[in-house]
């Protein structure tokens, strides 16, 4: 099923995306000239590996943002999911413990996201407040459940985090597979069209017979599921889980979505642009470290880029805003 977004948005999309990809290309070329170490293929794979966690979160966040919502709880949910996964990964490897180590973070993510979705869809409390509340509550739960880090995980689990299929690290494959699946869902399914419709104009969507509550519930569920998946990738990569993990990740994910050009008012945004936004931030971080730029300056640059991207968006969109 094909699903063109409302027709007048098309050209602006294309122009905006061009700006984003041009900026990404310029950044890559700039760092390649400035830092020889940046140029190595090994380092480019490293950038992909480093953005995989934020990328997976940003893909889930895109669904929520498209419905004109926000999910601030993903970092806290990631901490709970990571702890559960690591506790099972400490056990003697058996089919059951392997399944639990891999499956529990996804189930927890889905449940945590689903709770957000139920609260947003049915309580009429704004998504900002709901997920600010669960950001706090989920973090509290993680710390209450386990304040000390979980480490000494089974070998198979840690190897998973370092595994490369061909040349491509597994976390990167997971990120790209998630993005590809999400892109297909949004552009090729009825559910995807409904997500855009709910965010574009909720009243019109309701009038058209779309089950708005169910769409919202699903969007938050997907965001939570992605948080669980990101927890799995992060925990396997680090070989340990902590209740303080993921603090501030929600803001990085939102930044990637916004830099990718999605509108926080809903209805506008694409997965491939979110991926580009994630890469742009990842390239910045890696390049600035390689060129030995002090961290406070890095923060200023990345903050400036976020504002600049949205400003550029406004300029290109011109009269549509």
């Amino acid at each position: 099923m094909s699903s063109p977004p409302t027709s007048h948005e098309r050209p602006a999309f294309a122009r905006r995306s061009l700006g984003l990809y041009a900026a990404l290309l310029l950044l890559v070329l700039g760092f390649a000239l400035a830092a020889p170490a940046f140029r190595s293929p090994e380092n480019l794979l490293l950038v992909l590996r480093q953005v995989s966690v934020n990328g997976i979160l940003a893909v889930g966040m895109t669904f929520v943002v498209l419905t004109a919502g926000i999910d601030l709880s993903v970092g806290s949910l990631l901490a709970i999911a990571g702890l559960a996964s690591a506790l099972f990964a400490q056990l003697e490897p058996s089919p059951v413990s392997v399944a639990l180590a891999l499956g529990s973070p996804l189930v927890i993510g889905l449940l945590g996201g689903g709770l957000n979705g139920v609260l947003v869809a049915f309580s009429r409390v704004s998504p900002l407040i709901v997920t600010l509340g669960t950001l706090t509550a989920y973090r509290g739960f993680a710390v209450w459940y386990r304040v000390n880090p979980v480490y000494d995980l089974s070998g198979w689990y840690r190897e998973l985090g370092q595994l490369e299929l061909g040349l491509v690290p597994l976390p990167v494959l997971v990120f790209f597979a998630t993005a590809a699946a999400a892109g297909l869902v949004l552009s090729r399914t009825r559910f995807g069209r409904h997500v855009y419709a709910v965010g574009g104009n909720e009243a019109a969507a309701r009038a058209a017979g779309i089950a708005v509550e169910r769409v919202k519930l699903a969007a938050y569920g997907i965001s939570g599921f992605c948080a669980g998946l990101a927890a799995l990738v992060l925990t396997a990569r680090l070989g340990a889980a902590q209740s303080v993990a993921g603090q501030g990740f929600e803001l990085q994910a939102i930044a990637a979505v916004v830099v990718g050009g999605a509108s926080l008012f809903g209805g506008r945004g694409r997965i491939r642009d979110t991926v580009a936004g994630t890469l742009l931030i990842g390239v910045l971080f890696n390049g600035l470290v390689l060129t030995n730029v002090p961290s406070p300056i890095q923060q200023m640059v990345i903050g400036g880029i976020i504002i600049g991207a949205v400003w550029l968006d406004g300029v290109v969109q011109g009269r549509e805003r």
């Binding site: 940046f38 380092n43 490293l46 480093q50 990569r237 680090l238 340990a240 470290v289 390689l290 002090p294």
Partner: peptide
């Protein structure tokens, strides 16, 4: 480099620095 007292940040910063 600053890594915010954070484990995953310490990992990412070290990975990038080791590349250089």
């Amino acid at each position: 480099q600053f890594a915010d007292y954070d484990r995953s940040r310490g990992q990412a910063v070290t990975e990038s620095l080791l590349a250089a």
